[in-house]
């Protein structure tokens, strides 16, 4: 039973790590502000979310799990909000999304 439990924990943590990798790649490689913000917000929500969930499951019967779940709730609330605030401010101050160049798939 413990083995299955730990397998779930490891799978969740790896899933989160993969999202962090993709988000970091996106931050470095994507062409403009909006696409980069989009990539990074995936790190904070799905990436950090599933890693925190894995940690909560790992310590599950103990009350620390509840604390980690609260932390998860805070991250899920605050991180998309800050990303939204950035994108909102950029859009309302006239930052245009990058147009695809000629011959580029849109």
């Amino acid at each position: 039973m413990t083995a299955v439990w730990h397998a779930i924990v490891v799978a969740l943590a790896l899933f989160g790590a993969a999202f962090f990798l993709a988000g970091t790649l996106g931050l470095l490689r994507l062409p403009d502000f909006y696409t980069r913000a989009h990539a990074v917000s995936k790190c904070d929500t799905v990436g950090a979310g599933s890693i925190l969930l894995a940690l909560a499951l790992y310590v599950a019967p103990q009350p620390e799990a509840l604390k980690i779940l609260l932390l998860l709730l805070l991250v899920l609330l605050s991180s998309p909000t800050s990303c939204h605030a950035l994108a909102h401010a950029a859009h309302h101050t006239g930052l245009e999304p990058r147009e695809p160049r000629a011959g580029e798939p849109s």
């Binding site: 805070l74 609330l77 605050s78 909000t81 939204h84 605030a85 909102h88 401010a89 309302h92 101050t93």
Partner: peptide, 16 residues
């Protein structure tokens, strides 16, 4: 200011 306050941000900050 040209940026209208975002209702989403306002709501989450009031909540937290």
């Amino acid at each position: 200011p040209a940026v209208a306050p975002s209702p989403v941000v306002g709501f989450v900050i009031r909540l937290l």
